[in-house]
Computed example of a mutant assay.
Amino acid sequence: MVMHKGIGLERFNSLPRTRAVHALYSCCCAVTWAEKVADGRPYADRAALLKAAEVELPALSDADLGRIFDSFVRQEITERTTELLTRLTRDRINLMIGPSDGYPEY
């Protein structure tokens, strides 16, 4: 479950490292992956963030990949492929970022 919804890319880029890792972890449930992607900030645009996220997924161990798939309890998973994991993670990152400017803070 994504806990940081619609924060916008600018706000994501400015989060302290631990909060950025937490936001990314909620998208993919892999600390190593979240740390590597968070350390790549700031991202110029959404495409750059998504590309960095995609590049780091295949570098994970089989055990990490299995745990990530297990975290997608609400999605119907018919096969455990990197392509499917990339798509699911991309969807969660898009939910986390939301609109380009994020939602307004109240």
Rank of each mutant, 00 (worst) to 15 (best):
64 D>N: 10
40 G>L: 08
45 D>N: 12
83 E>W: 00
89 T>K: 15
89 T>S: 15
8 G>F: 05
69 F>S: 05
77 I>N: 00
48 A>M: 13
68 I>H: 01
90 R>I: 06
89 T>R: 09
6 G>H: 03
4 H>A: 11
26 S>G: 11
17 R>D: 08
82 T>Y: 06
31 V>M: 11
2 V>D: 06
28 C>F: 02
18 T>M: 05
65 L>Q: 07
100 S>Y: 08
63 A>E: 09
57 L>A: 09
50 L>N: 05
81 T>W: 04
65 L>V: 13
87 R>S: 15
48 A>L: 10
106 Y>A: 15
94 N>G: 05
29 C>Q: 05
105 E>I: 12
21 V>A: 07
9 L>W: 02
63 A>T: 09
60 L>I: 14
69 F>H: 08
11 R>N: 10
62 D>H: 07
32 T>M: 09
73 V>C: 03
88 L>A: 03
72 F>L: 09
74 R>G: 08
79 E>L: 14
20 A>N: 02
86 T>K: 12
19 R>F: 04
27 C>M: 01
23 A>V: 14
99 P>G: 15
80 R>L: 06
2 V>P: 06
56 E>G: 11
91 D>Q: 13
10 E>Y: 08
90 R>C: 07
63 A>Y: 02
68 I>L: 06
104 P>Y: 05
84 L>H: 10
93 I>P: 04
47 A>N: 14
54 E>N: 13
19 R>M: 07
64 D>Y: 02
84 L>I: 12
12 F>P: 07
33 W>M: 12
42 P>W: 11
30 A>Y: 00
88 L>W: 01
62 D>Y: 06
65 L>Y: 03
58 P>A: 15
73 V>K: 01
64 D>F: 01
14 S>E: 11
49 L>H: 03
55 V>G: 06
85 L>I: 15
1 M>W: 02
97 I>H: 00
29 C>W: 04
96 M>V: 01
56 E>V: 14
66 G>L: 09
66 G>H: 10
75 Q>K: 06
29 C>N: 07
30 A>H: 01
12 F>E: 02
35 E>H: 04
72 F>S: 06
6 G>Y: 03
57 L>T: 12
6 G>D: 05
55 V>W: 04
49 L>R: 01
6 G>R: 00
100 S>R: 13
85 L>M: 10
46 R>E: 12
